[in-house]
Write a protein that binds this DNA or RNA. Sequence first.
DNA 1: GTAACGATGAATTTCTGG
DNA 2: CCAGAAATTCATCGTTAC
Length: 908
Amino acid sequence: MEEVLRVLKIERVQHAELPAAVTTVVVPPPLVLVKDEPKETVLEVAGHDDQSTGLVLFSNTPVSIGNQILSQGITSRHEEKLQATVANGGGAAAAAIRTSTQQEANNKTLLHTSSSKKRVPDECNEPQVQPPPRHLMRVLQAAAPEEEEMEKEKKPVQKNTNRHEESAAVAASSSSFQVRSESKGQGLNPSSSGTPPNFVCQMITTTMPLQAEEKEEIHTDDDDALLPAIAQHSGARNGSTLELDFTTRQIQLQEMGFEEGLITQALRAHGVHADDSILVQFILDLQTNTVNNSIGSNNTEIVIENWQDEDEGELPNHREEDIFEQDDSSEGERDEVETTLESCSYVPQPEQSIGQMPNKTRTWDRPSSPVNPTEKYTRNQTFLLHQGFDPVLVEKVLEKFGEEDDINQLLDYALALANCDAASISMRNSMPSTSYSVPFQCQELIETPAVNTVDKLVNEFKCTFSARAIERALERCETPRLNAKDHQIVALLDFLDAHGDELDQDVEACTMSNPRSKENTDWEDIRHLMAEEGQMSPKTMLPPTYRPPKKAKGLENIEPPEPKRKGAQGFGLPGMTVRRRHLSRDVEGAPFFYFENVATMPKGEWSKIQRHLYDIEPEFYDSLHFSACRRPRGYIHNLPVEGRVKILPDPPMTIQELMPQTQAFWPHWDPRTKFNCINTVKASQPICRKIQENLEVEEPPPDIQRMILKWCKTWNLVWTAPNLPSPISENEIEECLGFDRDHTRGFFATTRRFAALGNSFSVYTVAYHFSVLKPLYPNGIRVLSLFTGIGGAEVALHKIGIKLNVVVSVEIQEDNRACVEAWWRASGQTGTLDQTYHNVMSLGRNELRSLLQKYGGFDLIVGGSPCQNFSGNNRVNRTGLSGVTSIMFFEYSRIATTVREFVRHMPS
DNA sequence: GTAACGATGAATTTCTGG
DNA sequence: CCAGAAATTCATCGTTAC
């Protein structure tokens, strides 16, 4: 049985341009691994997984531990670790059966009822077991240096998971936490508003002591970056072992079909223990550059990404000039990178006119292709053959696109043909037609392309679960093996996330049904409806753009627990010392991004979101620390966390401060001082009437008081007259959230206004986070605002005093757009408000390119994606990321990562 | 536009065995 | 008295039929 490893380059192709989604797959010479015999324990071979243009080295089917060739590349240390984990993690996992709840019977009348629910002890509830040894496979996937790097990088993360310990340690370790300076009176930007600002910033600069181990950590990183890869490990191993490894890897790569010279170059450049994907990609790049220097922009992008990944001495802003100043690499490497940078990115479409970028010293055009058609044909043929496509297939492709300049089109077509060949025709005929699209070039030839679900799961969605787990998940979720739709695959991934560990084991007890099947048809309908209305392509919902590889789980390497939300104080409140965090160099620095959503998602959903946003730990805040209402939210961002200030003067911090007129009627048994979270619906009149009826008695009994209080809390009722509870008004909500009163007045129908406010940011909280941007952008900021809503982020930036040079606002609701536009005028903004795009799904790569060219880049990408499927208030479809609206998070992720990719590759 | 519609997970409190 | 387990309390950017 043969196992074929393929290196895939998956790239999103702008969906507005193509009627169908295109996944570009670059297949290198097959890497053949021969299995001795199947074993019980299977091995996933997965390399590193990068962003949308990243690489995935994977195995379609399990590779046994006894794999002869693979074992050559595995050190004995790996095998020991694997065996140890198998031995320790082999317990059977039982599906936890959720305990049922029992409601008290009498719930019809208000009197003498209780809303409390009692959990019935469930005898079937078995204790959770440790994750099974599936993750051990991932230990193997990382070569020794990779593993060490991972562990090194994990240390600060794991350390950060225990905030109490760290803060205690910081407090105990030093008294050097100092308030260095405090100054008041920083007003708003005078040029941005005709009226003097009411807010001042209280500048409190805190400095964190650099702890010894952190100093050492940074030092080590830098050193590593400067050392040749081989030399990194020479100290850890003796010369003979190193030589043996070198030879082993050389043989291994030779068997993959690569030339010896290229292999030697790759091993010298990356070291013998580098990840296969890195080596293979390096060789491919060498090949590609050798065969033809102008294959296409996308291939050169890989070179850049790899180079940047490897260059740990890179500065945060990643400007190339800075890189060169810092980089100690050889002159030859520098020339190569310069050439690559010159040829990368921004491939103009024929119909597009490329505006001149300000302050540019380089052209965005890629190098011109060979003029001679025969030369093009030969070039494409060589390229496709080098990617490992069958010669017959290559001929077919070349017949149609032999002289095509765009290499991606060729690859799309070749992939579609390959997929078609691979799939069973009989099965294809028996399957219902699918919405999954093939490249438009192929549709005339392939009417119903059969796409293997597992392939799609692994290739597009970058699933790293074992084939066994996937097989079982397919059965459990009743997912078709061919042509599964995207939402079905998302559901499958969710199921795998939840039960993948169990599925890897021989556990018969897992009786989960498909938890996501309910809304599948809804989503499909919506997509097609929107497609018919021209709002989006049917295949707009592309897979996530960033899915870091799953972390290896071993005995000593356990996934950090979900971050605690107790208190929801993020990395620190005003006046508190700030908890430090460690962002990788790939993530830190401009352009900044800022994502917000509800804190209390279904279990595991924040972890998924985190994985799609550079694996940055969410920061949970409750706005009750900044205003008179609760608003527990999670934020994932790469903003600095030190030096935050809040806007002054302080807003009303209690209900009583906000509404002093209610104090006269406030019952003594109602202890509330803060509103609960502002929802999107108002309390119904019958609730208020019922409360009134029960308050006819002068002093209601305690149980009635409790019930009334519960309703007051749920619906944010206030006492506007004796025994008269009323819902909080829109104006009061505006003030609670940090908007000016009447911010939303006049744009919405009554219910819509309430909903728009309920969906908004808490300006005070967001402003606190954004305040670190003020010294960074004294001349103003360019913002890409997704899911703008009523403009909470923009208002926050304005109130901090950051000038809004450009705001590209993407908001689908017309009334919201009108509200933002009105605020823009009323607040005397002098910058540009661009509301051209209404739907985030219409922002493809080309649109983003043109926006970047128009405005010269973005400094901040901000957005809070819809939360309906996350919210605890949703009784119907609280389905998490696979929900109809919450899946829009992936659009934020896609756009944020794409913009960051573009901006960071832009010449300064 | 109105009104009726629970489940979920975290935080908190209480119970229990040593 | 204490630690861990179990029970209870509490809050939740909402959906849908009418």
